[in-house]
C-alpha cells in the first residue's frame, strides 16, 4: 500500500514494512501491512484495542519472538537490512529500536541502577560516562529535577507516572535510532501527558518515534504522520494533518468522528 498523501517526503525510509502478516497461534494479528517509517518523524499508530498496534511495534524489535505460538510472514527492513528472516543480532537490534511498554516496569534496584543497568548491558563501563548518561537520560524526560536527590532510592518507590518517564529515560539512555512507545500516556494525568508530548517534540530532533496510542487526540497533537489500524489491517496512512481533516477512508472518518 502506498501513502495516500502526496505531501509525504520522498526521502529514503528508515524502516520499510513490506506485506507483514502475523499470527498468534491460529489468530491473525496483522494482515499484509506495508508501511514506511521515515527518519526523525513521529508516527502515531492508532486504532481500537486489539487492532494490532502493539503487535506491529513488537515485530519491529522482535519481542514477539518470545511469545509462544507467534509467527510472521513478510519482511521488515531497517536501513535496508532485513530483520525478521535474516540472522540478526537481536540484542543489538533492540538497542537500536527501543521499546517502552504500556506498563512501566522498573527493574530491581535504585532509580540510578535502572538506567545504569541498561548502559552496562550495552557495554558502557566508565563510571563517569554512566553518571553523565544517567543524568542526560533523566533530563530528557524532565525527571532529573524531581529525582536527583533520590537517585539511590528504590525505583519501585516512584509513582506510576515517574516510573513511566523512567522507562523512557532508560530506553533513551541507550541512544536508540528509533523509539517505540506503546501507549505512552496510558494512566497519566493530562498535565503529565502534555509534558510528555512536549518532550516528544524535542526528542524528534534526535530520534525517529513510533507510538501506538488509543488516544486519538494525542495522535493529532503529537505526531507528524498517522497510521490507522483496524482488526490487524492498515486502513489508512497519511500525514496527521490530512488524516484528521480529510481522511480518504470512510472507516477512518467514522473512527475520528465517533471519538471526537
Amino acid at each position: 500500500m502506498n501513502p495516500t498523501d502526496p505531501t509525504l517526503p520522498a526521502a529514503s525510509p528508515k524502516v520499510v514494512i513490506d506485506h507483514l502478516s502475523a499470527w498468534f497461534g491460529a489468530t491473525p494479528a496483522l494482515q499484509e501491512i506495508s508501511l514506511n517509517i521515515y527518519p526523525f518523524e513521529r508516527l502515531a499508530i492508532i486504532g481500537p484495542a486489539g487492532s494490532g498496534k502493539s503487535t506491529l511495534l513488537r515485530c519491529l524489535n522482535r519481542l514477539n519472538d518470545l511469545t509462544p505460538g507467534f509467527r510472521s510472514q513478510g519482511q521488515v527492513f531497517l536501513d535496508g537490512q532485513e530483520l525478521l528472516t535474516s540472522p540478526v543480532d537481536v540484542a543489538q537490534l533492540r538497542r537500536k529500536i527501543a521499546l517502552v511498554n504500556t506498563d512501566p516496569t522498573p527493574l530491581p534496584g535504585t532509580v540510578f541502577d535502572n538506567i545504569a543497568i541498561a548502559l552496562k548491558m550495552a557495554g558502557v563501563r566508565a563510571p563517569a560516562q554512566i553518571d553523565e548518561r544517567v543524568e542526560t537520560g533523566l533530563r530528557n524526560v524532565f525527571l532529573w529535577d524531581e529525582v536527583k536527590d533520590h537517585l539511590h532510592d528504590p525505583a519501585l518507590h516512584l509513582t506510576n507516572e515517574k516510573r513511566k518517564r523512567l522507562s523512557v529515560a532508560r530506553a533513551l539512555a541507550l541512544e536508540p535510532e528509533i523509539l517505540l512507545l506503546d501507549e505512552p500516556c496510558a494512566n497519566l494525568d493530562h498535565v503529565s501527558a502534555t509534558r510528555f508530548e512536549d518532550s516528544l517534540e524535542e526528542l524528534k530532533q534526535r530520534y525517529t518515534i513510533v507510538m501506538a496510542t488509543n488516544d486519538i487526540k494525542q495522535a493529532a497533537r503529537a505526531s507528524d504522520k498517522t497510521a490507522f489500524f483496524l482488526k490487524g489491517e492498515l486502513v489508512e496512512w497519511s500525514s496527521t494533518r490530512k488524516f484528521f481533516t480529510q481522511p480518504d477512508q470512510p472507516r477512518s472518518h467514522a473512527f475520528i468522528t465517533e471519538r471526537f
Partner: peptide, 29 residues
C-alpha cells in the same frame, strides 16, 4: 520474578546471560 522484568530486560537489548545476571538474580535475591 514477573515476566514483565524479563521483557523489560530483553527490550533493553539484554543477552540471555545479561538478563539473568543483571535483572533476574537481583530481582530474586
Amino acid at each position: 520474578v514477573p515476566d514483565s522484568y524479563r521483557e523489560a530486560g530483553l527490550a533493553l537489548g539484554a543477552t540471555r546471560w545479561q538478563l539473568i545476571y543483571r535483572v533476574l538474580l537481583p530481582a530474586a535475591k
